[in-house]
Amino acid sequence: MALSTSSNFALPDDAFRAVVEAHRDLTDEQSADFDAALVLILANHIGDIDVLREAIALARRRMIDGQQQQQQQQ
């Protein structure tokens, strides 16, 4: 597996807050635009198509798991 999923930030809360705060004052539409640009910038920085594909697969998997959990709760 080329994608690193261990914790890479010394202060993970700072990283999470940085992303959250970047969305402050944005409408949902603007937030989506912002996310699209951020994803492309970070993807290019990684610069490794295998890592990118693994990251995409992980994100898709979480989304499907999340939907199933929701359905079970309902």
Binding site: A32, D33, A36, A37, V39, L40, I41, N44
Partner: peptide
């Protein structure tokens, strides 16, 4: 969403090589 990603690329193209 495809349109949104394209918009992001076009706007990033103004200042980035990638």
């Amino acid at each position: 969403q495809e349109a949104r990603l394209r918009k992001a690329v076009l706007s990033l193209a103004k200042e980035t090589e990638f």
